[in-house]
C-alpha cells in the first residue's frame, strides 16, 4: 500500500466492498482477491463474491424494478445527470484508480471524461427514447392502438475486460435510463473503479438496488447469473466463444434476452444513441376502445 502523494502522513486506504441493494457489504463468503498495480504492489483486497451474493444481487434488483420503471423519464434523467456531476467531481480519484491499473495519465483522464459524457448523453435519452420508438398504429378497427417500450426488467451486465470504467458506464447507462435494474459483474482484473463508480451512483439519489455491483471471478459468477430464473436479460461485450455458448444455452431456461455489444471502441460516438436502450425494452401494444 504505497503512499502515492503524501510523504509525511500515512494514507487512509479504502476497503473495496460490493454494492448491493444500496449498501456496501462485504461478500458473505468472506473471500477476497488481491488487486495489484502494474508493478505488483497491493492496491486492495477486493471482494470475491459468491453464488449467494449473485442471488442477493438479483433479489435486490428485482425489488427495485417496479419503482424504478415507474419513475418518470425526466426523473431518471435527472439522476443520471447527477451521476455525471458526481463522476466529474471525482475525476481525480478515478484517474488515479485507472492509472494504478496500468493506464497512462492521459488515457485515464480521457476515459473518465468520456464516461462523464456518456452519462450525460443517456441522461438526455431517458425521456426521449419513448417518442423515438413508440408508435400510434393506424389499425382498421375503431381502436386507439399504440405501442410503447417498457423496461425488460432485471439485466445482468458483464463488464468489459478493458475500459473498466467507460465500458461499464456505457452498458449501465442505457439499461437504467430505460427503467431496468442491473446486476453488474466488474472487470475481473480491474474491479476497483467499478466499486468507486457504485459510490458515484449511490451519491446520485439512485434508489438502492437499481444498480448492484459484484467483483470476483468471471468463471465462477457468470453461470449463477446466466442461469438465474429471475433475470430477464444479459448484456456482454467480450465473452469468449465458450463462455458465450454457455451463457446462451443457459438463457434458454427462461428465454433471457442476450445482448452482445460490439463497439469498435468505447470512445466512439457509435456507442451513443437510443438503440442500446431499445435492446433492453419490450414493446407493449395496447388496444383502447373508441366509442361510437
Amino acid at each position: 500500500m504505497k503512499n502515492a502523494k503524501d510523504k509525511d502522513r500515512l494514507q487512509v486506504a479504502k476497503t473495496y466492498k460490493l454494492y448491493l441493494g444500496g449498501a456496501f457489504p462485504r461478500t458473505e463468503s468472506g473471500r477476497t482477491i488481491k488487486v495489484t498495480d502494474a508493478k505488483g504492489n497491493l492496491l486492495a483486497n477486493a471482494c470475491r463474491a459468491s453464488r449467494k451474493d449473485c442471488r442477493e444481487a438479483v433479489v435486490a434488483a428485482r425489488g427495485a424494478c417496479r419503482g424504478w420503471a415507474a419513475r418518470s423519464g425526466y426523473n431518471r434523467g435527472q439522476i443520471l445527470y447527477r451521476a455525471a456531476e458526481m463522476l466529474e467531481g471525482r475525476s481525480e480519484q478515478f484517474t488515479e484508480e485507472l492509472r494504478s491499473s496500468g493506464a497512462t495519465s492521459a488515457q485515464a483522464r480521457r476515459e473518465v471524461a468520456a464516461s462523464v459524457d456518456r452519462l450525460v448523453h443517456y441522461a438526455g435519452w431517458a425521456d426521449k427514447y419513448q417518442q423515438v420508438f413508440g408508435t400510434v398504429n393506424p389499425v382498421a378497427s375503431s381502436h386507439f392502438n399504440f405501442s410503447l417500450p417498457e423496461a425488460t426488467g432485471v439485466v445482468v451486465i458483464i463488464a468489459s475486460r478493458d475500459a473498466p470504467l467507460l465500458g461499464l458506464a456505457s452498458m449501465v447507462a442505457p439499461a437504467i435510463a430505460g427503467g431496468n435494474t442491473a446486476v453488474c459483474l466488474a472487470s475481473e482484473s480491474f474491479p476497483l473503479s467499478a466499486i468507486t463508480f457504485g459510490e458515484v451512483l449511490h451519491a446520485s439519489d439512485l434508489p438502492g438496488g437499481v444498480v448492484n455491483l459484484l467483483t470476483g471471478q468471471r468463471d465462477e459468477l457468470i453461470p449463477p447469473l446466466s442461469s438465474h430464473m429471475d433475470v430477464n436479460a444479459l448484456v456482454h461485450v467480450d465473452l469468449d466463444d465458450k463462455e458465450r455458448k454457455q451463457v446462451e444455452e443457459d438463457a434458454a431456461l427462461n428465454l433471457k434476452r442476450i445482448i452482445r455489444r460490439k463497439p469498435s471502441n468505447w470512445f466512439s460516438d457509435e456507442v451513443d444513441g437510443p438503440y442500446p436502450i431499445l435492446d433492453l425494452q419490450e414493446i407493449k401494444t395496447t388496444w383502447h376502445p373508441i366509442g361510437q
Partner: peptide
C-alpha cells in the same frame, strides 16, 4: 406484449405483436 381493453383477439398488420418473458 399485447393488451386488449374491452376487446380480445384483435389483430392488424400495423399493430406489433409478440411476447414478454
Amino acid at each position: 406484449g399485447v393488451v386488449w381493453a374491452n376487446t380480445f383477439n384483435k389483430f392488424d398488420p400495423t399493430s406489433p405483436f409478440g411476447g414478454y418473458k
